[in-house]
Design a protein around this nucleic acid. Structure first.
Length: 499
DNA sequence: AAAAAAT
């Protein structure tokens, strides 16, 4: 059996690999490292989760042991589609390059130029970049690309999706053609093949089987839900609470605004939760991801920025709050769990309107996904209330659901994912008003349900069905209704605040 | 029905 020791890596690199606990290379590593060390061009067709990053980091480290960097003349250049991926590759250089004295510079947007400039000035052995920021540095004249010996283009198909190919071409033109090029892509559509043909000279082609993409170790289920945001959020909360083996989870939304909104909702409900999407400032992105990786956050609500490539080990669950619009994204998303042979669970919330996207997914993965408990047609009728979203109160964070849990003695301990948040004074007042109303046998907070008054079958005065924890219960997370408006709550106050 | 990336 091939071990890392058989691949021709330098002793310094080998010892770092051993220290990291690896002995057996993955197929892409075994296939790509020897020709890369022989200075061949590489065409690697491999998805994330196959050990692709190490397949270029390790030989680069070995090759970089000869020679030294000169100011403003980087020796190697790695292009990544997202900032997080770039940062992750930089971490790999730290980990496997701990026996080297290499200058690694991370050139990504969203952070200041100063430190990046300083590193360039000092002479970078390795430059890890997102295309925009790299070109920015080039245009500022801080960077000479004529010394680049190795160019890595990672996630080429994703770069294509993101419209980066013109940038990549511009960058490639600045680099001498005597360079060695390592080119990686998860898929090989014709445009990518053309690009590879232009960039690579007589490459060694290594193709590895898609990592058990919809792996057998991942239990996939569909969860029927009504389609309103609050109904989906309630379904999701119940689903999360029902998981006994949940260690940590990524929850995917299709849109950034929905990431922000779901994050706020879960946070208010006391879940240990973070958010990640491309409109957040870079510091927040970095800390959120770090906290999630360090298990300081149990849940991460994310856009597809997190769907591919991010190496977050040991995610026990993936929840698709939205059915992804592009079927491939489904595969990438659920590929965040069940990695390296571990078991994982992936749940996808499906409402009526998601039908055709679901069909496309099942066609792509060539299997039918089981429903957790009945399909959409089996859903109980929509909750009788058609209340709309209420405004978001800044001060009424969390707590309320669990307060009721206690006072009513409902069974079920708060799960590990939930943390207690102090009930604010204003919230206590609202609770007090509610309790008073209830004692008087009046419907709770009528302003919250303008239609309740003329509902065909009014609830008995002591009916507390509204409060029963049910996936169909009205989302109760949106703060107290503004008191004093009666049925005349201005429309603008009912619109969910978008970040 | 989207997201990502330079400012």
């Amino acid at each position: 059996m091939t071990t890392f020791a058989d691949l021709g890596l330098s002793p310094k690199v080998l010892s770092a690999v051993t220290d990291a606990g690896y002995t057996i290379p993955t197929p892409i590593q075994a296939g790509a490292i020897p020709p890369a060390l022989a200075r061949r061009d590489i065409l690697g067709i491999a998805q994330t989760g196959t050990g692709k990053t190490a397949s270029f980091v390790l030989p680069m480290l070995t090759l970089l042991e000869k020679g030294r960097a000169r100011a403003r003349m980087p020796r190697t250049l790695i292009l990544e589609p997202t900032r997080e991926l770039a940062a992750q590759v930089a971490e790999n250089f730290e980990k496997y390059g701990k026996n080297h004295k290499l200058n690694v510079a991370l050139l990504i947007g969203g952070v200041s130029f100063d430190e990046q400039d300083r590193k360039l000035e000092r002479g970078a052995d390795v430059l890890i970049c997102t295309p925009g920021r790299l070109l920015d540095h080039c245009e500022r004249g801080k960077l000479l690309m004529t010394g680049v010996e190795i160019l890595v283009i990672d996630e080429a198909d994703r770069m294509l999706d993101m419209g980066f190919i013109p940038d990549i071409e511009r960058i490639a033109k600045l680099i001498p053609f005597t360079r060695q090029t390592l080119f990686f892509s998860a898929t090989m559509p014709p445009e990518i093949q053309k690009l590879a043909d232009r960039f690579l000279q007589n490459p060694e082609r290594i193709e590895v089987a898609p990592p058990s993409s919809t792996a057998k170790t991942v239990t996939q289920r569909l969860v029927a839900t009504h389609g309103k945001d609050y109904e989906k959020r309630a379904t999701l909360r119940d689903l999360i609470r029902a998981q006994d083996d949940l260690k940590n989870a990524i929850i995917f939304c299709n849109r950034k605004v929905d990431v922000a909104e779901l994050f706020r909702s879960l946070d208010r409900h006391g879940f240990s939760v973070g958010a990640l999407h491309g409109d957040m400032d870079q510091r927040a992105r970095t800390t959120m991801l770090a906290n999630f990786k360090e298990n300081k956050l149990t849940l991460l609500v994310a856009s597809d920025v997190a769907a591919r490539g991010l190496d977050i080990p040991d995610v026990s669950h993936v929840f698709n709050f939205d059915v992804p619009i592009h079927a491939e994204d489904y595969v990438h998303r659920i590929g965040r769990t069940g990695r390296a042979g571990r078991s994982g669970a992936a749940f996808t919330l499906v409402s009526k309107r998601d039908g055709k996207f679901l069909d496309a997914i099942e066609k792509l993965i060539d299997q039918k996904i089981e429903w957790l408990s009945g399909g959409i047609e089996d859903l109980p009728p929509q909750a009788e209330s058609e209340e709309r979203e209420r405004p978001r109160g800044g001060r009424d964070r969390g707590g309320r659901d669990r307060d009721r849990d206690r006072s009513r003695g409902r069974k079920g301990e708060p799960r590990a994912t939930e943390t207690r948040i102090e009930t604010s004074e204003s919230e206590e007042k609202v609770e007090a008003v509610k309790a008073e109303r209830k004692a008087e046998g009046r419907p709770q907070n009528p302003a919250r349900n303008p239609r309740a008054a003329n509902h065909a079958a009014p609830r008995p005065a002591n009916d507390d069905s509204r409060d029963r924890r049910s996936r169909y219960r009205r989302d109760d997370d949106d703060g107290p209704t503004p008191l004093g408006f009666g049925d005349e709550v201005p429309a603008f106050m009912l619109i969910a605040g978008k970040a």
